[in-house]
């Protein structure tokens, strides 16, 4: 069965395990990011409205530049595979912190971040 699906998708025999791992990774990661996006976008739009979105873009530009610089340095130091693991762990912890703040400290400005 697996062989037939692999043939259908032009995945070679030796690639099946790797491709399936990567597919599953993308699936799980996509779900996690999607839930976070829905929650954050809703919270922001509800709290500040769409007219403040450009400010988020500007702030986002600054923050993302820093994130990206850190990403490139870390990638050079620890390699892309380990970096992916680190990012996933940091993401899980950061989302947990977000939840704690939003749940227990009715802090409106937090939805910006």
């Amino acid at each position: 069965m697996v062989r037939k699906i692999a043939d259908l998708l032009h995945v070679k025999y030796g690639e099946v395990q790797l491709v399936s791992t990567l597919f599953l990774t993308q699936f799980l990661m996509g779900t996690a990011v999607a839930y976070f996006t829905i929650a954050s976008l809703t919270l922001f739009l509800y709290a500040y409205g769409v007219n403040n979105l450009p400010l988020i873009y500007l702030l986002g530009a600054v923050f993302l530049t820093f994130f990206n610089l850190a990403f490139v340095r870390l990638e050079a130091r620890i390699g892309s595979y380990r970096l992916l693991q680190v990012i996933l762990l940091v993401s899980a912890v950061s989302v947990l912190i977000c939840w704690v703040f939003l749940k227990f400290f009715e802090f409106k400005l937090f939805s910006v971040f």
Partner: peptide, 19 residues
């Protein structure tokens, strides 16, 4: 809306453990 973040946490941990 806020509790949707738990799904995100679970999936992030899931993919971390998978890798």
């Amino acid at each position: 809306t806020i509790n949707l973040l738990w799904v995100s946490i679970i999936f992030f941990m899931g993919v971390y453990l998978l890798l």
